[in-house]
Amino acid sequence: MTALRHVAIVGGSQAGVTAANTLRTAGFDGRITLYSAEERPPYSRPPLSKDILLGRGDAASADFHVEEGVELRLGVRATGLDARARRLRLSTGEEAGYDGLVIATGARARSLARTPEDATDELRLRTMDDALDLRERLKGSGSVAVAGGGPLGMEIASVCRDLGRDVTVVDFLPPMRRQVGGYLAELITEAARDTGVRFVQTAGPAHVAGHAVVSGGHRVAADVVVTAAGELPNVEWLAGSGLIHADGLFVDHRLWAAPGVVAAGDVVLLPTPAGPVRTPLWTNALDQGKAAATTLLTSKSAPAYQARPYFWTEQFGLSIKVCGTIPGDAPPVVVTGDRAERALVLQWLSGGVPVAAATVNHRMPVAGLRRLATADSTLSPSRRGNQ
C-alpha cells in the first residue's frame, strides 16, 4: 500500500473543502493540495440563490473556512487522470503526482439554449459569478422567465418576486413534485401563486430561444431568462480513465473509485439495490467529504458510507426541511400544525413505518427531524394534527 504523504483534491466544492478540513482535523500532517477551476477562493453555493441574489451579502460572505496548511491552486483545472500511475494532468500543462486523490469536481448547470446566439441570452445560476451577473441583470428588468420548477428555479422565482419582478415559471412537470412529493409541492405552488407567480406547464422539455422559453405551442418572453433545469456532472476530464459513466463517477460503499482514489459530492454515483444513483444534495456533499477523507486515512477499516438524505429550501415565505425520502404523492400524517397557516410538522409512512419527515415554518433540530423520519419514531393518534 502506498504511504499517504500527499493528498490531492480536485474541486473547490463543499465536498472538496470538507475533505481537506477533515484530513487536517483528523491529524493528517502531510501535504494537501486543492485544485479549483475557479479563480475565487472556495465558497458555499446555497447563498447564491438567496442572500447573494437579493443583495444582502457580498461574495466574501460565502467563503469557506479552509484549515491551515491546505495549498489552494486557484484557476487550475484537472484535465486528465492516470489512476495507475497516480498522476494528474492539469490545465497549466503540468503533471502532478499524489498518494491519495479526492475527486470532488461537482456538477455544472445544464443549458437549454439551442444555438450559441441563444446562449448569450440564457442565464444560469451555479457559480458566484453567475449570481453576481444575474443580480445585475435583474436591476434593469421588469419580467423574468424561469425554465425549471425545481428547488433552484423556485428559489430564484421567489427572490425575483421579492424584488418586484413579474415572474413566470415554465416546466413540463408540476413544480417541486419530483423533490418533495405532491403534498408539499401543492403547498409551495399555492404560496407562489399568492405572490403573483405565473406557471406554464408544457407538454415536454423546453428550450431557450432569444429572450424566451419555448416548448411546443408555448412561448414565454421576458426581459431576463433563467435556466434552472438541473445539472451535469463534471466528469469529462476523466475520459479514458475507465472510472466514469455518463451520469457520474462510480464508487463503492466506502467511496473508493479506484486504488488511492475516493470521490465525494455531486459527481458521485452511489451503489443502491436499484442501481447507481447520483443525489446532488448539500448535506450529501458535506457527509461524503468527511467520509472520503476518513476512507483515505483508514483504508479498509473505514466504515461504509451511510446516506442520510436531508434537504431544505426557503421560498415564498416557506422554510421547509425534509429528512428521508418522501414516497411520491403519498399523503403525510400531520403531526402538528395547520395547513391553512402553513406551519406544520409532517411524517410519511410506508407499510406503517416512518420513512420521511418534514417541517414547514416550524423550528425543530435536524436530529429531531431525523428521528421522526426513522423506524424508531412512533406516533400516538392523539399527536396527529389536522390533515
Rank of each mutant, 00 (worst) to 15 (best):
Arg193Phe: 03
Val213Ile: 13
His253Lys: 11
His218Thr: 13
Gly217Tyr: 09
Ala191Ser: 14
Ala222Cys: 09
Tyr183Lys: 04
Gly248Ile: 05
Val213Phe: 07
Thr195Ile: 05
Pro233Glu: 06
Gly181Ile: 13
Phe199Val: 12
Val208Tyr: 04
Phe250Ser: 08
Ala203Asn: 13
His211Phe: 02
Asp223Arg: 03
Val208Asn: 08
Pro233Phe: 06
Arg219Met: 05
Val235Phe: 01
Glu236Ser: 13
Thr189Asn: 07
Gly216Ser: 04
Val214Phe: 06
Gly242Cys: 06
Ile188Arg: 01
Phe199Tyr: 14
Val180Glu: 11
Gly196Asp: 06
Arg193His: 07
Ala203Asp: 15
Tyr183Arg: 10
Ala212Thr: 11
Val214Tyr: 08
Thr202Asn: 06
Asp247Lys: 14
Val251Met: 00
Gly217Thr: 15
Glu186Cys: 05
Asn234Glu: 12
Ala209Tyr: 02
Ile188Glu: 13
Ala203Val: 04
Val197Tyr: 01
Gln201Thr: 15
Thr189Lys: 11
Phe199Thr: 12
Gly242Gln: 01
Ala229Thr: 15
Glu186Asp: 15
Leu184Cys: 11
Gly196Val: 05
Val208Leu: 08
Gly240His: 08
Leu255Ala: 10
Val220Tyr: 01
Phe199Cys: 09
Ala212Asp: 07
Ala257Tyr: 00
Val226Ser: 14
Ala191Ile: 05
Gly204Asn: 12
Gly216Leu: 04
Leu249Asp: 00
Asp223Cys: 11
Leu232Gly: 02
Trp256Arg: 15
Val226Thr: 07
Ala221Pro: 08
Gly216Trp: 05
Asp223Thr: 04
Val225Cys: 06
Glu231Asn: 14
Leu187Trp: 03
Glu236Arg: 14
Glu190Asn: 10
Ile188Gln: 15
Leu232Ala: 11
Glu186Gly: 15
Val220Cys: 01
Val213Tyr: 09
Gly240Tyr: 05
Thr227Gln: 05
Asp247Trp: 01
Leu243Cys: 02
Ala228Asp: 12
Arg177Asn: 10
Thr189Ile: 05
Val213Gln: 12
Phe199Lys: 09
Leu232Trp: 03
Glu190Trp: 08
Asn234Pro: 04
Glu236Met: 04
Gly217Gln: 07
Gly216Phe: 11
Gln179Thr: 13
Ala246Gly: 05
Gly182Met: 10
Gly242Glu: 06
Val213Arg: 12
Phe199Asp: 10
Ser215Gly: 15
Trp256Val: 01
Ala222Val: 06
His253Met: 04
Leu249Ser: 00
Gly217Trp: 06
Trp237Met: 04
Ala206Leu: 10
Thr202Met: 04
Ala257Leu: 04
His218Ala: 14
Trp256Tyr: 12
Ala229Tyr: 01
Gly181Thr: 11
Arg254Ile: 02
Gly210Trp: 08
His245Trp: 01
Val213Met: 12
Val197Lys: 12
Val214Trp: 08
Asp252His: 04
His207Val: 14
Arg254Phe: 03
Pro205Asn: 10
Val224Leu: 08
Thr202Ser: 08
Leu232Glu: 14
Ile188Trp: 05
Ser215His: 07
Val197Met: 08
Trp256Thr: 02
Arg254Thr: 07
Gly248Cys: 05
